[in-house]
Design a protein around this nucleic acid. Structure first.
Lengths: 194, 194
DNA sequence: CGGATGACAGATTTCAATATCTGTTATCTC
DNA sequence: GAGATAACAGATATTGAAATCTGTCATCCG
């Protein structure tokens, strides 16, 4: 009997390791099985296809970041404009940090994200829902004036794409990127203001 | 003697044809020479390297689009907010049209653009200069209130990246993309307003 | 019987031999 | 002599045979 039972979680852990080591192009199900000391047939017992396995890894990665941001949404001691500003900053900083700390791993997840656009769409829907909550709070407090908070939240998310969408990651290394973010952020805040 | 002298322009024309036909990965200098009925050595007389040839093609393509937008900037019968709105729409429509009409060709130029980021930077600088002119006009007329028109122009350009940067092209096929653009555009206009 | 295994078929990837391409240059032509 | 050419070396791309991978399944084990 192996030291521990084979669980989806252990498989996902091993898959992340393999992806980190070999990259998205070379990581195989056989590699994952080898890392776990089992046959690849056993992996297929828990994940029906390689695509499903990669999707689960992607989901896991995205959920970790959404969780962090939800904490900012939950803070109640800040006025909405400040909270929105901080939320956007946190999203940008988190992305930039990940991209800067380990560009290779970031690129790996970039590939997974392109593969699993469905999972990403759901993730984005959650982020926009958080944004909407902050904007709604601001409307209630008379700090923001918008017709439709859902539309506004979507617009804010879209307008900051340059600072969170991985396809712009290369530009995040520019020394002026911070100023550019502030300029967009301020302009948007101003646009929402009552 | 060939029907016409071999000029840089004819070579660029032929290069565009070859790129259209074979795509960016397979288009070779030998192909271009063959299309022109000359030896590839002759092409190298006009363009020092394959990279220089591709850069010139990229430049040509980008200049065509900047030229169209400059016409909108030059119109003097519209108030600045309307002009800005129309300019952004025109940029988005032009990109979306190109991407939709011939996705393969658009992808080809997408590859060239990644190869020649220097040329693209200059192109973007020109676009932002046009934006800045419109914003300055609005500030003079008391319609816009911004500290620094250069920063504001940059911010507007960045905030609309989702609607002009080729890395977002796949999303331009969404049926709701028009509404999303309008929402961002309105939000930005509001943010600039005095 | 629930869970793991290894052998298997068809699809995909790797690798090394072969062909093509890039960029230079000595030569040719008008 | 200005402009084109073709031969060439080194770098890059293509190709097809061999290896590996994906996903299935009959079989084995506790």
């Amino acid at each position: 009997m192996p030291p521990e039972a084979l669980t989806p979680d252990r498989i996902l852990e091993a898959t992340e390791d393999v992806l980190r080591r070999y990259g998205p192009a070379k990581a195989t199900v056989v590699d994952v099985a080898r890392a776990l000391g089992v046959s690849h047939g056993s992996v297929y017992r828990h994940f029906r296809t390689k695509a499903a396995l990669r999707e689960a890894v992607t989901n896991r990665w995205l959920e970790r970041s959404v969780g962090q941001l939800a904490k900012i949404t939950a803070i109640t001691t800040q006025p909405a404009p400040v909270k929105l500003q901080r939320w956007l900053s946190a999203l940008f900083d988190a992305k930039r940090k990940k991209a800067g700390d380990d560009p290779e791993l970031f690129a790996t997840y970039g590939v997974l994200i392109e593969e699993n656009s469905g999972v990403v769409d759901e993730h984005i829907r959650e982020l926009i829902a958080q944004l909407r909550e902050i904007i709604e709070e601001g409307v209630r407090a008379g700090q923001f004036a918008v017709d439709d908070t859902a539309v506004a939240a979507h617009a804010v998310f879209d307008a900051t794409a340059r600072f969170h969408d991985p396809c712009h990651a290369a530009k995040w290394r520019s020394p002026t990127i911070g100023d550019e973010f502030t300029a967009v952020s301020d302009l948007l805040l101003n646009g929402l203001r009552a």
